[in-house]
Design a binder for these strands. Structure first.
Lengths: 345, 345
DNA sequence: CATCAGAATACAATCGATTGTATTTGTGAA
DNA sequence: TTCACAAATACAATCGATTGTATTCTGATG
């Protein structure tokens, strides 16, 4: 029943020492080719399968990389995960996928758990609640290599792979302006997160470039769920200032707004043009389809993994000269929610 | 830097034996409360954290449950995973999430890997290519408890948690018939998978009940991707038989069809009414919104986990009298794609 | 033929926790 | 006080692979 064969069984069968078997199986130069061949043959014969529990225990690390995302059901994150899996594949590592569900306490527990399991490294995108970094610093002090992607914290010596959110926010807003919008609202997320601060900064920069006055009351902060988008749309309609454009820092809230506007008979894009962020699959399907910033999730996953694996195989103290942050561009996908018929740029 | 304290450090500090420390930390009745308290205090003082690698190695199993799904980005699967995580949480297990991406060879490698990592158990929903079961039988012989959910194989002694696909297929088709459809097409998936066979059987049963002749040319088989749906819609339009209803075995293909029909000016639902299966989030957003069968993913995850954990904690030979299969109902969600205005049932 | 370097292999400790068995300690009854 | 028995603790082996060190083997050279 149970799969039994160990290196000792192989050693006994061949009347050699287990250490030689171990070295042969790890392709050490200290074992002659002839012996390696004999060992390999016997290993196959016995159906030997390395006991990773023993191996990892002795080596004090696993071949597992922990990945923490807010939620796997978000298209962006599942595409990052695909990129990670692809990149990790050849290196012979596993991926342990965890969801923080945007909760700081879950993030803490997950990290606790990953450390207890001695993962080789961690890739993470922090939750919206992550305003304290004790758990991250603990991981750093513990010597576990890790790397942020998309949503990061400024921690000395920890690298990040990011989207250029500032540029993305700028591009999205400029797009609306070029479409003829004069009064542009903005949905932003928790200001503790750099990605949202940066998108907002890009928004302000674009306004400034085109000499459109910035009005704080047009910037609404929330957790950017669909309800928040609907709520925000409602708030915007009740303002004395009439708006004709909306840049939402994510697609989900933008969709909430589109639905609300539709229900209230506010024409999108004629009355209010909208741009989202992330290019969720629903964005291409909703009517009107949503103009949005596409993020190269798969690529982020690949790059982040590559960097992490480098760090893992390197000396514990990674090269301090290496670039701390890798920044990828997001690109605008124009769809119907920003196609005003009465305007030809 | 490194987190060091072991049970031996605690033992030495208190001048007792490591085995007592181990038993105390595992709350064994063989250690007095007084000693337990001393040990706990010292453990906290030293910042002791159990080395799971050593523990798992010695115990020959991990506290990890492997989960294999075709892809995590499908809403149904990510909701199952949420249910699994929730149920697993208290039991102190981890979840190792893997994607087969509908590929048999990936499924094989994943299982190989999970076994090498000595997971405590596996929950899986097989890929569309899984027509050979060698890897599953290997896992069974290996003594690793596992359980199917949603997509299963008939393997002696292995339990499943399923949706009642037959009933679902029946309900979906009957719904179309009651809406006045007389000529109903059907998109089905690979016939190797029981779920698709069953949905098709439900479809046929409903036709029979209402004395509508079954026409094989109206049943199209594919992998049910969006392209397949569009392709299928095209094929249907080219048939001599004119159709007025379509039951697609998943939402993704149904959406492909809706988009194609829209492009070709075929009115949905007036000309062709459509029902999908799975209730993906996009289904509520597409225009017209898609009538579909909702699957209780979260609940499936919870139940499957509960059963698996039972099996894990039980004797290796699980109770053969236990129900082999748990079947949950799916429920119809009526939306615009099947609301014909000219028909009042 | 003796010597010696380097290759090949063997020996033995070790990782940290668990667990069966042995020993000591403590308690109550006779 | 003593004995029996249970409770509490100590001892020691073990899980399977890895790895530093020691030993043996091989063949080339003078």
């Amino acid at each position: 029943m149970e799969n039994k064969a160990t290196i000792h069984d192989i050693a006994k069968a061949l009347k050699i020492d287990a250490s030689t078997v171990s070295r042969a199986l790890n392709n050490s130069p200290r074992v002659s080719q002839k012996t390696k061949d004999r060992i390999m043959a016997k290993a196959n014969e016995l159906g030997y399968q390395r006991n990773l529990l023993a191996s990892n225990f002795r080596k004090r690390v696993t071949n597992t990389i922990g990945v923490i995302v807010p939620r796997i059901s978000r298209h962006f994150f599942s595409s990052v995960i695909s990129g990670i899996e692809e990149a990790v594949y050849d290196a012979g590592y596993n991926v342990l996928i965890c969801q923080s569900l945007e909760q700081l306490n879950r993030e803490r527990k997950i990290i606790e758990n990953l450390l207890a399991n001695r993962v080789a490294g961690v890739l993470l995108s922090v939750s919206m609640e992550t305003v304290e970094w004790d758990h991250l610093l603990k991981m750093k002090n513990n010597g576990t290599p890790f790397l942020f992607f998309d949503r990061h914290c400024e921690i000395e010596g920890i690298r990040s792979v990011l989207i250029d959110d500032f540029q993305g926010g700028f591009d999205a807003t400029e797009h609306l302006i070029l479409k003829g919008c004069k009064s542009i609202a903005h949905f932003s997320g928790p200001q503790e997160l750099a990605i949202y601060r940066n998108r907002t900064a890009g928004y302000r920069k674009a306004l400034k470039k085109y000499k459109i006055p910035f009005k704080p009351e047009l910037v609404l902060h929330s957790r950017l769920m669909e309800e928040d988008g609907a709520e925000g749309a409602k708030t915007l309609l009740s303002l004395p200032t009439e708006i004709d454009g909306l840049f939402s820092a994510n697609d989900v809230a933008a969709i909430g707004a589109i639905k609300y506007f539709k229900k209230e008979g506010v024409n999108v894009p004629e009355k209010v043009a909208i741009v989202g962020f992330s290019n969720e699959p629903v964005s291409g399907i909703i009517d009107p389809s949503l103009t949005t910033m596409d993020q190269p999730g798969f690529k982020i996953g690949q790059i982040a993994t590559k960097l992490l694996l480098e760090e893992i195989s390197n000396a514990p103290n990674a090269n301090p000269l290496m670039a701390k942050t890798t920044i990828l561009k997001s690109s605008l996908i124009e769809r119907d929610s920003s196609r005003k018929s009465n305007h030809q740029p």
